[in-house]
Amino acid sequence: MTPAPRSRDARRAPRLGIVLRRPTARRTRAAPYDRAEILARWGGCCYCDGPAEELDHVIPLALGGPDVAANVVASCRACNQAKYTKPLATWAAED
């Protein structure tokens, strides 16, 4: 029995020192907080008292903030997009 023909990339990989890997499924984990519970706790946007639609990390994940309930607040879309990855003090000082 002859082996199945290999793709062009598979034939070139050993010469180029490339390791071909099969894609792996991403691991998913449950959120450490309940979205509905946080939205109900705040009742509206914590920044402007408008209707809350999204969750915002007070200390952004991009700046090393923890992904825990104590760091998450309810926010309207406008405030969440304006704050983006800025620390709360920096964002509040801009207004």
Results as ranks from 00 to 15, higher is better:
Lys86Met: 12
Ala89Thr: 05
Ser75Ala: 15
Thr28Gly: 03
Glu54Tyr: 01
Gly17Leu: 03
Ala52Met: 07
Arg8Ile: 07
Thr85Val: 13
Gly43Gln: 04
Ala25Met: 11
Arg15Gly: 12
Ile38Glu: 12
Leu88Ile: 11
Val19Leu: 05
Tyr33Leu: 03
Trp42Tyr: 14
Leu39Tyr: 10
Val19Phe: 03
Arg12Ala: 11
Pro5Ser: 05
Glu37Trp: 05
Glu37Thr: 13
Gly44Pro: 00
Ala13Ser: 02
Thr2Pro: 15
Ala52Leu: 07
Val68Asn: 02
Leu39Met: 14
Ala70Arg: 14
Glu53Asp: 09
Leu88Met: 06
Cys76Phe: 11
Arg8Val: 07
Val58Pro: 06
Asn71Phe: 01
Cys48Val: 11
Glu53Phe: 04
Asp9Val: 12
Gly50Phe: 00
Gly44Arg: 15
Gly65Asp: 04
Leu61Cys: 03
Glu54Gly: 02
Arg21Glu: 13
Leu16Ala: 04
Pro3Asp: 12
Leu39Arg: 08
Val68Leu: 13
Cys45Asp: 05
Arg15Ile: 08
Ala92Ser: 09
Ala89Pro: 00
Ala92Arg: 14
Cys46Val: 15
Ile18Gly: 01
Glu53Tyr: 07
Val19Met: 03
Trp91Arg: 01
Gly43His: 06
Ala13Thr: 01
Ala93Ile: 00
Trp91Leu: 01
Arg15Asp: 04
Ser7Leu: 08
Ala13Ile: 02
Ala93Lys: 07
Thr90Asp: 07
Arg29Lys: 14
Ala78Thr: 14
Pro51Arg: 04
Arg11Gln: 04
Ser7Ala: 09
Met1Lys: 04
Asp95Phe: 13
Thr28His: 11
Lys83Gly: 08
Val68Gly: 03
Lys83Pro: 07
Cys46Asn: 03
Ala4Lys: 11
Ala62Lys: 13
Asp95Tyr: 12
Gly17Ser: 03
